[in-house]
Every structure is written in C-alpha cells, then in structure tokens.
Design a protein around this nucleic acid. Structure first.
Lengths: 167, 167
DNA sequence: GCGAGAGTTCAATTTAGTTTGAACAAACCG
DNA sequence: CGGTTTGTTCAAACTAAATTGAACTCTCGC
C-alpha cells in the first residue's frame, strides 16, 4: 500500500482525508463517480491550485482518472484552470459558488435527460392514439398526459431551483 | 430467450415495453436500480392492479427482485397495495401524483444524506479550529463555513421544491 | 528535428451494486 | 396437522460502470 518510509509531502493529512470523504459521498448522491468527488474535494481544501500530477500523487489515482475527472469537472463548471503565469503545466482550482455548481449540474446532467424524456414521451403519446380498444386508448391518453405534466413541472422547477441556490 | 411458441398474455406489447424503458431511464437518473423503473413503469401503464407474480412473469425478473423492488417503491410512497377484496394475494397500484413521488424521494433519498452531511461537516468544522498554522486555520474555517452555507441552502430548497411540484 | 514533459485515449481489468434463485417463513385450507 | 400458495431473505453470480496503465499525441525548448 503506502510507502513504509514516507514522510513525504504527498500523503493527505487526516482532515484532508475526511473532507475528501465528504465530497466522495456527496457526489455519489448525484450519481457521479467517486474520483470526481476525490478530485473536487482535494481542490476544495487546497489553498493553492493543483496540477494533474499533484492529484495523481496525493490521491493515488491514475493519470487517466485524473484527466477524465478534470474534464468532467470542467464541463460541469466546477473547476477552472488557474492563471499559471509562465508555467507550462496547468493548475486547477475549484469553483465554490453553489449557484455555479448547481447550474452546471442541471445543465449537464438533468436538462438533457428531461429533454430526451419529453421527446420520447410525445412519441409514445402519438403511438397511444392508434390503439384500437377505445377504453384502453382513453386510459393511455390520460397516463401520457400525466407524464407530460410531470415533464412540464420539471422544466418549470429547474430555473426556480437555480434562482434559489444563487443568492 | 423467449418461448418460440408463446402468444401468451404475459409478454409486454411494444407500447408497454417503450413506456417501461422510459421509466427505467428515468430512475437511473435518480440513481435507483433498473428493476424499480421496470416495476413502476409497468404498474403505471396497467389499467388493473398487479400482483408480485404478474410482475415476475411479465417483466421476466426474479421473485427476489420484485419483492425488493416493491419494498423500496412502497417506502418511497410510489406504490400502494390495492383493495384486494377477498383475495389472499396482494395487488399493487402506482401513486401517480408527482407531489407524492417527489416527496417520497426527498424524504427517503435526499434528506438522510443532507442530515448526515451536516453532521460530518460540523464535526470537521470543529477539527479545523485546532489547526496550528493560523493562515491555514483561517482558510479552512472559510471553506467549512461555505460548506455549511451549502447545506443550509439545500435544506431551504427542498420544501420549496415540494411545494412547486405539488399542485 | 529530437527528446522530455504534460495530457489524452481507450482496451482491459477491477469494483460496486444489482439480480438471481434456493432456502426459508407465514398464512391459509382441507 | 400436511400441503399449497404467497412473499421474504441473503449469499453467490452477474453486470454495468469506473479505473487503470500503456500507448499515443502535442508542445515546448534546445
């Protein structure tokens, strides 16, 4: 596992470990992979911006994971590249405004599902019109209408959510 | 796979299959297992209440899955037992009010995480007070305060969400 | 142009979480 | 009671998804 004689600067200290654990837990609720939580968590408690290599070494994850994790976090707007002056290597820092985080999550993870759901449902709705048995047809129409109402509610709620989180 | 000569009443027709697929997809977004989506989806488009055995036969899932799935759906308030008159076997029907569904999900899946998160964070917050380096301590205090603010926002948003979905 | 460093990609592996199914319990009934 | 039907439990098997790491590309400095 860990080096027997280390004392190097790379191990996480207990506090860092716990904070990372909180974020790992947090992102699991959102259905995101563990590594995302680890990376964001470490950036969140780091006073300085960190490079991909820092993440690899301190979290003991592979370069592949770190690269993919950072890509997703960037797409969520949860991390940004820091001004690295003359350095070639890029350093990352976390976005810590809840508004931004929630906005990114909604945009990237929720909206797309909501949209594709709407589409599938309206297709189904049409298909349901072609059912022969009138009673069955009526029932299905009602249910499809219900589904469409759900989707509309979802669409209406998201902006409110964003507004509430962005104070 | 399927029986070659079947024509029995148990296979899902194409419309049913598609509706089930929509729900399978829907619950995955929520981080719930596929079988939950299958079961709820089938109940949602069924005109009559269904028994555990109906679900097993029509969805080709095991009794174990059906039993566990129904348990979770009941705990979420997403299905209820139908009045089954003199029958021994119990039949299930879906709750279709979005308010109820969202409420159950929030109560069972979100609140517990939020609560445990709050607890862990306030413990961390205390630990952070004991850091020796004053600059580090200040930084950590700020970040912990930030986390606590997030949690408070979360707590404030949920009731609003429920209210918005319940009309 | 060449070598070294930084980062990406993706097939193979590992892991976490779901599903299965056989054994069990509980309720009913002759 | 003994048998049948209904539903639950849980260890083992399976599967989907995350992670790894080796091969690759790109860019920079010399």
């Amino acid at each position: 596992m860990d080096d027997l004689l280390n004392g190097d600067q790379y191990e996480l200290d207990p506090l860092e470990r716990q904070v990372v654990a909180v974020f790992v837990d947090g992102v699991r609720v959102l259905g995101l992979p563990r590594s995302i939580g680890e990376i964001y968590g470490l950036l969140f408690i780091s006073q300085t911006a960190l490079s991909l290599d820092d993440l690899v070494q301190r979290l003991h994850i592979s370069k592949g994971s770190a690269s993919q994790g950072l890509r997703m976090l960037k797409s969520l707007g949860a991390v940004r590249e820091a001004e690295s002056g003359t350095e070639r290597r890029t350093y990352y820092e976390p976005a810590i405004e809840l508004k931004r985080l929630a906005g990114g999550f909604i945009r990237e993870q929720i909206r797309p599902h909501l949209e594709s759901g709407k589409t599938k449902i309206s297709r189904l709705s049409e298909t349901a019109q072609d059912i022969d048995d009138p009673e069955r047809r009526k029932f299905l129409s009602e249910r499809m209408e219900r589904l469409e109402t759900w989707m509309r509610s979802g669409g209406r709620v998201l902006p409110v959510l964003q507004k509430l989180l962005g104070q």
